[in-house]
């Protein structure tokens, strides 16, 4: 291990930031006791190595296992734990985390480290080019996808066709759990987000197009993590239903103003 890298991690782990973070990394977590600690370790190491002030936010989604206790016990100075009293859906957890984030650049990343954090810099480069939203993509040319089941490939391929051609969202992979936003874009999008379930990504990207935000797609390496909670068939049906709901919400004018204020966490367990 390089001393400078280790030192950077140790400082991040023990000394609360005295300044606004450059980066925020938001990780939604629902019953992730088996996966969350290695993911936190990998992300903390890589992000600390970048040499910029940054914070991590774990947005619990009403876990009934020991996820919350495990994260609290880590006692990391710049990790903020948002605890939900009940399960509200991945979209609700991500929204609470994104609206709590203080960084200039905000990434949300799935708790299974299926998209390795080392690709952070490739998305950030697009933000630095002037994009508002940058989407990690398993469907863009150059992406590397490992262990994805045939069923998931068929469902995602079909749904992406609908998304691109019917809803004209210019993104080939709306569901990859690795998306980056400028602070302003995150604030505007997640305050309006209404869908609390799996399809919240789709709604956020729909809103980004509606608001003429610049959106880029970056190919990523993605490894299907064992123990995925995604049930392809059920999710596909919900996805189609939510497409209709998003359109209906828009027609009713429900995206014209904020739908959420800054959420107050029930418990800020560690740090910050």
């Amino acid at each position: 291990m390089t001393d400078s890298s280790l030192d950077a991690y140790r400082t991040w782990a023990s000394e609360p930031l005295q300044e606004r973070p450059r980066y925020s990394v938001v990780i939604p977590a629902y019953n992730e006791e088996w996966r969350i600690v290695p993911t936190i370790g990998a992300i903390a190491t890589e992000m600390s190595r970048l040499g910029q002030p940054w914070e991590m936010i774990i947005a619990d989604d009403g876990s009934t296992d020991t996820t919350v206790e495990l994260v609290k016990d880590l006692d990391l100075a710049n990790l903020q734990l948002l605890v939900a009293e009940q399960n509200g859906g991945k979209g609700s957890a991500v929204r609470r985390g994104m609206l709590r984030a203080r960084g200039d650049i905000v990434l949300f990343a799935d708790a299974d480290q299926s998209t390795p954090i080392e690709q952070f810099g490739e998305l950030e480069a697009k933000i630095n080019e002037g994009y508002d939203v940058v989407v990690g993509s398993r469907a863009a040319e150059g992406a590397e996808v490992e262990n994805k089941s045939f069923v998931r490939k068929v469902f995602s391929g079909g749904l992406n066709l609908i998304v691109r051609h019917v809803f004209r969202i210019p993104v080939a992979d709306t569901q990859c759990g690795f998306k980056m936003f400028t602070a302003d874009a995150a604030d505007r999008l997640f305050r309006r987000q209404l869908i609390d379930e799996f399809s919240f990504d789709l709604e956020v990207l729909y809103l980004a197009r509606k608001f003429d935000m610049r959106t880029a797609e970056v190919p990523v390496r993605w490894i299907d993590a064992p123990g995925s909670k995604v049930e392809a068939g059920k999710v596909a049906l919900e996805f189609l239903r939510d497409l209709a709901i998003i359109r209906w919400n828009d027609l009713r004018g429900r995206y014209k103003s904020d739908n959420h204020d800054l959420p107050e966490p029930q418990l800020a367990a560690t740090g910050l």
């Binding site: 291990m1 991690y9 600690v37 370790g41 990998a42 903390a44």
Partner: peptide, 13 residues
């Protein structure tokens, strides 16, 4: 000689 992330993961666990 564990790599940076592996060493940190060993420590956190």
């Amino acid at each position: 000689a564990p790599s940076d992330p592996v060493r940190v993961i060993l420590e956190l666990t």
